[in-house]
Design a protein around this nucleic acid. Structure first.
Length: 520
RNA sequence: GGCCCGUUCGUCUAGGGGUUAGGACGUUAGAUUUUCAUUCUAGAAACAGGGGUUCGAUUCCCCUACGGGCUACCA
C-alpha cells in the first residue's frame, strides 16, 4: 500500500511565512446567504486581516440549473452589511480576474484533458439513467475501481470505439481515476491529521457534459491560479478532500497547495442536522443574513438585518459560535476579532444555534454603541410606523434614554413612539379600578401647577409632584402610575419625570387633560 | 449500509493527569427601579459509557454508544 502524504503542519508553517496570505470565500449563487456561509466568510476575512493578507470573493456558479438571478448581488450586499469587504471580487476584480467560475469556463477543460493524457482521468459515456439503475440495483455502488471496468468509459472501451464516440460528440464527462490501495492524508488546521483510503473514494466527475467543471476541479484549479494560501470551508467538504489532494498532486502543484481548515457546522437548535432555511420558518428565527426574496416562488425568507439586528452584533455572535479568544470576553467588534483571531481556537465540534443568545448579543450592542450610531436605523423603524420626527437632537436624546431597554431595533418603536405622539390608547385596567375623585382633583391641580412653571426640570417636578400629593392627602405611589399611563399609555418606560421634562410643559399638560377624560 | 469527523451544565464554551470543573445565554430566587427594562447578588445545572495507562484520569490510549457530515454530470 502506498502512502500519499501531504505536508504536515510544521513543514507548511515554514512555507507559510514566505507566502502571502490569500484566502477566498467561494459561495454559489443559489439563494440567500445562510448563517454558516456568513461565518465562513467572516473567518476567512478575519484570518486575512490578522495576517495582512487578501480576502477574495469568488463566485462558484458552475451549476446552471441551480443558478438564481440576483443571488450574487445579494451575497455582496450581505458581506457589505457585515463589514466583510473583499479585496478582490467579481465587482472589484484584481489581477486574477475573472472571479466568476462561469466566466472561467474555458480554463478548466485544458486541465481535465491534461489529467486524461497523464492517465489520472478518463472519459465516461454513461447516461444518468444507467447510473441511477446501478445505484438502485447494486448495494454500495460507486463509480470507482470495483465497477468502472463494467461501465462505458475510456478505460473499459476499446480505443477505436472511444475515438468514435468522441468524434460523434457523444455526451460525456471526465472523471478522475482514483488509484487503488493508497492512503491519502493531510493536516487540517483545525482537526489535525486526517486520512482516507483511496479504495473508499469514488471517481468523481471533474468536467460535466456541458463543459462546466464540477466543484472538485474548479476549486483546485482556481485556488492554484489565484494563489490561495489557506482554504477555509465547511466540514461537509471533508469527505471530498482526498479528491482535491490527489488533484493537487496530479496537476503537479503539490508544493502550492493551500492549507486546509474544515470549519465545524452550525446545527439546528432543537435536534438533528445542519441548520437550514426551513428551521428558521419552523422555529421562528432567521437563518439568512438579510431578507431573501425568491422571485420564482414569491417566497420571502426573513433575515437578521430586517429583524432588527445590528451588523456589529451579527458578526460578533457568528464569530463566537465555534471560536473564542481564550478569555471570558464575548463582546468584540470586527477589528478586535481580526486582531485576536487564531485558527487554533476554533472548536472542532458543530454548534447548535441559539437564538436567545443571538438576541442577547444584539441587546448588548445596542447598549454599547452611541445613540448617534443608531439614529439612521431608529429613524427608519419609526418612519415605517408613520412616526414623524422633526427634531434630530430630540431624537438623539430619546434614543439615549431608552436604548438600554431595546433588544431588537423595532423595539425602539414601542419604547419611544410616545415621545413623538400622544398615546392613542391607555392601559385602563391599571388605573380605572382604583380611580377616585381625589385623583381627578390632584391631576387638575397638577395641570395648574405645571402651567405656572417656565420650563419643566425633572428633579424639580418630582419634588413638587410629591409635595402636591401630600397636600392632597394622597400617597405618591397612588398617583405615579396614573401619571405614567397619562404620558406613556402603558406600564413601561424610563423615569416618569424624565419623560415629562422631555415632553415639555405644554405637551405634558395636554396629555394629563386628555387622559383625565378617558380615566373617568 | 460504507467512509470521515466529533462528544464538558438545556445551549455556546474555558480548562486539562491531582481544580470547590470556570464564564456566558437561558432559567430560579432576591435587591434596586413607587412602571417595565437595565443593573446587581445568589442558586440549580456538565466531563456519554466501558476498558486500559497511571499513585491518581474529566484530561492520554482503545472499544462501544450517541451525534453530525458525505456517499449527484449540487455546491
Amino acid at each position: 500500500m502506498r502512502h500519499l502524504n501531504f505536508p504536515t503542519k510544521k513543514l507548511s508553517l515554514r512555507t507559510m511565512s514566505d507566502k502571502k496570505v490569500r484566502v477566498r470565500f467561494a459561495p454559489s449563487p443559489t439563494g440567500g446567504l445562510h448563517l454558516g456561509g456568513v461565518r465562513t466568510a467572516l473567518f476567512n476575512y478575519l484570518f486575512a486581516k490578522k495576517n495582512k493578507g487578501d480576502f477574495i470573493l469568488r463566485v462558484e456558479d458552475t451549476d446552471q440549473n441551480r443558478y438564481v438571478e440576483g443571488a450574487e448581488a445579494y451575497i455582496i450586499d450581505c458581506l457589505n452589511w457585515c463589514g466583510i469587504i473583499p479585496d478582490e471580487s467579481p465587482v472589484t476584480p484584481g489581477q486574477y480576474a475573472p472571479y466568476r467560475q462561469s466566466e472561467r469556463k474555458s480554463i478548466y477543460r485544458e486541465y481535465a484533458e491534461r489529467l486524461v493524457m497523464q492517465g489520472h482521468a478518463y472519459y465516461a459515456f454513461d447516461t444518468a439513467e444507467e447510473l441511477d439503475k446501478n445505484r438502485k440495483e447494486i448495494p454500495n455502488f460507486q463509480y470507482g475501481q470495483v465497477y468502472r471496468d463494467g461501465l462505458r468509459n475510456s478505460l473499459s472501451l476499446p480505443q477505436h470505439e472511444v475515438d468514435q464516440l468522441l468524434a460523434d460528440h457523444t455526451p460525456h464527462v471526465i472523471r478522475i481515476k482514483i488509484p487503488a490501495d493508497q492512503t491519502v492524508s493531510f493536516t487540517d488546521m483545525i482537526r489535525g491529521r486526517v486520512s482516507f483510503e483511496t479504495n473508499q473514494v469514488d471517481d468523481k466527475v471533474l468536467l460535466k457534459a456541458d463543459g462546466m467543471p464540477t466543484y472538485h476541479l474548479a476549486v483546485v484549479v482556481d485556488d492554484y491560479l489565484m494563489k490561495i494560501s489557506h482554504a477555509f470551508r465547511g466540514e461537509e467538504w471533508l469527505p471530498s478532500a482526498p479528491v482535491h489532494l490527489l488533484l493537487w498532486d496530479y496537476l503537479g502543484w503539490k508544493a502550492n497547495m493551500p492549507q486546509w481548515a474544515h470549519l465545524p457546522l452550525i446545527l439546528k437548535p432543537d435536534g438533528h442536522g445542519k441548520l437550514s432555511k426551513r428551521d428558521g420558518a419552523r422555529l421562528g428565527f432567521p437563518v439568512y443574513a438579510m431578507n431573501w426574496f425568491d422571485a420564482k416562488t414569491g417566497e420571502l425568507t426573513p433575515g437578521f438585518r430586517e429583524l432588527g439586528f445590528l451588523p456589529e452584533a451579527f458578526v460578533n455572535l457568528l464569530a463566537t459560535l465555534g471560536w473564542n479568544d481564550g478569555s471570558d470576553r464575548e463582546i468584540f467588534n470586527i477589528d478586535e476579532l481580526a486582531d485576536k483571531f487564531s485558527i487554533e481556537r476554533i472548536s472542532k465540534a458543530g454548534a447548535k444555534f441559539d437564538f436567545e443568545k443571538a438576541k442577547w448579543f444584539n441587546a448588548e450592542w445596542i447598549k454599547k454603541v452611541k445613540g448617534e450610531r443608531l439614529k439612521v436605523e431608529v429613524r427608519k423603524v419609526l418612519a415605517d410606523k408613520g412616526v414623524i420626527i422633526k427634531d434630530d437632537a430630540y431624537l438623539l436624546t430619546v434614543i439615549e434614554l431608552i436604548k438600554d431597554r431595546c433588544t431588537l431595533l423595532p423595539d425602539f418603536y414601542q419604547q419611544s413612539a410616545y415621545f413623538f405622539q400622544t398615546p392613542a390608547e391607555y392601559d385602563l385596567n391599571a388605573v380605572k379600578p382604583k380611580w377616585t375623585d381625589e385623583k381627578t382633583d390632584f391631576f387638575n391641580s397638577l395641570a395648574v401647577m405645571l402651567n405656572s412653571v417656565e420650563t419643566l426640570v425633572a428633579a424639580d417636578l418630582e419634588t413638587s409632584f410629591k409635595a402636591l400629593a401630600e397636600e392632597k392627602g394622597l400617597k405618591t405611589g397612588d398617583v405615579m402610575l396614573p401619571f405614567r399611563i397619562m404620558l406613556v399609555g402603558g406600564k413601561f418606560g424610563p423615569h416618569v419625570f424624565d419623560i415629562a421634562a422631555l415632553l415639555g410643559k405644554d405637551e405634558t399638560i395636554n396629555r394629563v387633560e386628555k387622559a383625565l377624560v378617558a380615566f373617568k
